[in-house]
Design a binder for these strands. Structure first.
Lengths: 259, 259
DNA sequence: GAGTGGTCTAGACCACTCC
DNA sequence: GAGTGGTCTAGACCACTCA
C-alpha cells in the first residue's frame, strides 16, 4: 500500500489555486478498499471476512491500521466484530436488529414479543414521478416499482407505506413474492436482489388523515398521523429506496436518541 | 493504574452463582475517571483539558490507552479534539452545533441563516406531577420549575414548549432572566447553573391541536402537530429536563438519520 | 520551534470461540 | 491448542496551531 500525495505536495486550500489535496490517511484508503469489496459483492452479507492479520498482509500495512479501518466500518454497521470468531459482513437477517430502521415502539411494552403482520395492497411498475426521480437519482421517465402495504401490530393497523424502488435491480419482484417471503423487506432485498440498505434519512411531519388514509388505518378522517418520508441508501451512499409512511401514534410512538 | 479483577478470578455468568465480573479494560477505567472529573466540574465546558501525554503520566498508563478513552468520549460528544490545539470539554456555546438537539429544519432552506425568536410565556414553581416525578427521578412532592415558551422562525410561530426542571439546581431562574439571556437554553443552563445536557431521548407522536394549542401556534384547531417529548440527561445519565414540544410542520420537518 | 493531536508500526499478552 | 479479535505498550514521525 502506497501513501497518497502528502500535504507537502498538495498545497493547502489557504494558499490559493484550486487545491487538489488527494491526501488521505492509510486507514481511510484501507476502509475504501474494504467498502469497495463489499459493494462488489466479494464478501456477501453474513459472510466471514478475512482476519485482520490476513488483510494486513494483503494490503501491506500493519494490523493496527487494518484494525482502525474495520473499527470505523463496524461503527457504521457495515461490519460486525465477534471476538474469537472473526469479522462478519452485517446483514438484516440474523441480527438481533431485524427491524433496525423501524423506530415505532408500542406505548405499553408487551410482555410477549410484538406480533406483526404485513399486508401487501399493491406492487406494480410505474413511470417515476419527478419527486422519485430526484430522490433516487434515476433518469426522468425511468420505471420504478411501487409497493403499498400495511403493517398490523397485535391486529391493529399501525403503518401504511408507499414504497418506490428502481425497477431494474428489483426485476422479478411481485406482490405474490412479497406475500410469500417471511421476514423484513430489507432482508429480502438483501438476499434476493443483492441490495443491502446501509443507512437512511427521514423527514418527519404531522399530517391530518385523508378519507382514504383514515380508512386504511381505521381512524377517523382528520386524525393526526406521523408522516415519515424515508430515503434509504446502499453501499457508497447510493439512494435505492424512497418510502412514505403514515404511522398511527395512538398506541405507539417514534423513538429517537439525540447525541 | 491497576488492572481490575481479571476474568480468571471472576467466573463467567454461565458457571452459575451471582457472577461479579468487576473487570473492565484499562481505557474504560480511564474513561470513567475523566467522566467523573467532568461531572465534578474539575474541567468546565469550553476548558482545555490536559494533554494526552500529561493524562497518561498522571494515570500511569500509556498515551495510547488515554487516547482510546478520549476517542470514545469524543464520539459521545463530551469532549472535542482539535488537532494542534488540544482536547476541550464540549459546550453548547461556541460550537457550530448551537442547536444540536433541535432537529427541526425549514422545508425550503433559507439563503440567510434562520432568524429565530423566543417568547417566554411563563416560568413558575409547581409541585411535580407523577409523570414528572418518574421522568426526572425526583421525590414525590418535590418542586419543579415549569417554563412555557414559543419559538418563532422568520416571524412564524413554529414550536410551543412546556419544560420541567428540578427546582433545586435551577434556583434563581426567572422569566425575566430567561428573556434577557441571548442564546440557546442549554447554553444558559450550562454557564449559569452548571448543568450540561449531554444526550436526550425523544418520543414523537402526531396529535391534533387543541383550541389553546392552535391559538398559540396560529393554526386551525385540529391541525396535526408533532408532539415531541424529550428527556434530557446530564453527565452520568442523570435526567434533568423533561420537555413536551408541539411542532408545526407546515413549513418545517423533523430530520432524522438512521444508522 | 514548541506543543498538541493524528497516523503508523511492531510486538506482547489477554479473552473468546471452536475443534 | 489454534485462531480470532481486544487491550496495552513504546516509539517514530506527520499535521496542525500558535507564539
Amino acid at each position: 500500500m502506497q501513501r497518497m500525495a502528502t500535504p507537502s505536495s498538495a498545497p493547502s486550500s489557504t494558499s490559493g489555486i484550486a487545491a487538489a489535496p488527494v491526501f488521505s490517511p492509510l486507514y481511510q484508503q484501507i476502509k475504501a478498499l474494504i467498502t469497495r469489496a463489499l459493494q462488489d459483492g466479494e464478501w456477501r452479507p453474513g459472510d466471514l471476512i478475512p482476519s485482520e492479520a490476513e488483510l494486513a498482509s494483503r494490503f501491506g500495512v500493519s494490523q493496527g491500521t487494518v484494525r482502525k479501518a474495520i473499527d470505523e466500518l463496524a461503527a457504521e454497521n457495515l461490519l460486525i466484530r465477534r471476538q474469537g470468531r472473526g469479522t462478519f459482513v452485517s446483514t438484516h437477517h440474523e441480527d438481533q436488529v431485524k427491524f433496525r430502521f423501524l423506530r415505532l415502539v408500542p406505548e405499553t411494552e408487551p410482555a410477549q414479543g410484538l406480533r406483526m403482520e404485513r399486508e401487501f395492497l399493491e406492487c406494480h411498475r410505474v413511470r417515476a414521478s419527478g419527486d422519485v426521480v430526484r430522490a433516487l437519482g434515476i433518469r426522468a421517465g425511468d420505471m420504478v416499482l411501487e409497493i403499498r402495504r400495511i403493517l398490523r401490530i397485535a391486529g391493529e393497523p399501525v403503518v401504511y407505506e408507499d414504497i418506490y424502488l428502481p425497477a431494474a435491480p428489483f426485476r422479478g419482484l411481485t406482490a405474490e413474492r412479497l406475500e410469500r417471503y417471511r421476514g423484513p423487506l430489507y432482508a429480502m432485498f438483501e438476499s434476493e436482489f443483492g441490495t443491502r440498505m446501509v443507512r437512511a434519512e427521514e423527514k418527519i411531519r404531522a399530517v391530518n388523515a385523508s378519507a382514504q388514509e383514515a380508512a386504511l388505518l381505521r381512524v377517523p378522517e382528520g386524525r393526526a398521523l406521523l408522516s415519515v418520508e424515508r430515503l434509504a441508501f446502499s453501499y457508497g451512499d447510493q439512494p435505492v429506496e424512497l418510502r412514505r409512511g403514515l404511522y398511527s401514534t395512538a398506541h405507539h410512538y417514534y423513538r429517537n436518541e439525540l447525541n
